[in-house]
């Protein structure tokens, strides 16, 4: 069977946090939904939140507290209309609610780098998968949200392993 060819560009959602950028690989998600088409529920005041979108219920991670915890200080969220990114996972769907404006862009795959080996496992466990230096001067972190679990209380930011 012939090997699938590796694409030369990576399609990502780009979030500007101020001093650095977050990139989410577009192919990590099967759909996005406008916040107005979703409903956020909390089973208990301290429990993880669930997002009802497209007729389905998903465990939900709020991206702003996650970004703030990892990369503080960051620019305040600027988007009145949140967007839910939906991820398909074997153990059940997951939604990631972004309250920050973003754009979808394509970046050359060859410009992405792994983190230095000594830090790689620790950062990967927190969802930091790879990086890119925009113009050599600005760090852009590609996040793998698949390892981020909804946390109690703040709606997200607990990683699968500590």
């Amino acid at each position: 069977m012939p090997k699938a060819s590796v694409p030369k560009v990576l399609s990502v959602f780009h979030f500007d946090l101020g001093t650095m950028d977050i990139l989410l690989a577009a192919s990590d998600f099967y759909a996005a939904a406008a916040g107005s088409d979703c409903r956020l529920e909390t089973e208990s005041p301290l429990g993880p939140r669930r997002l009802i979108a497209k007729g389905r219920s998903h465990d939900c991670v709020l991206l702003e507290p996650l970004f703030d915890r990892l990369f503080s200080p960051i620019l305040p969220a600027d988007c009145p209309e949140p967007t839910a990114f939906l991820m398909r996972r074997p153990e059940g769907g997951r939604a990631f609610l972004a309250a920050r404006s973003f754009e979808k862009i394509s970046l050359p795959l060859a410009e992405f780098r792994l983190f230095p080996r000594g830090l790689r496992a620790r950062l990967a466990a927190r969802g930091l998968a790879a990086l890119r230096f925009e113009g050599g001067k600005r760090m852009q972190v590609l996040m793998n949200l698949g390892v981020v679990e909804p946390g109690a209380g703040d709606g997200g930011a607990a990683s699968r392993s500590s």
């Binding site: 780098r113 230095p116 830090l119 950062l123």
Partner: peptide
């Protein structure tokens, strides 16, 4: 070179530098 801070690292790791396009701790 600019040092880019990183989360979840011990305090003696001040971040990353971009040295010839390669990140260095």
């Amino acid at each position: 070179l600019e040092v880019f801070p990183l989360p979840a690292c011990p305090p003696y790791v001040s971040g990353l530098i971009n040295c010839h396009g390669k990140p260095h701790t």
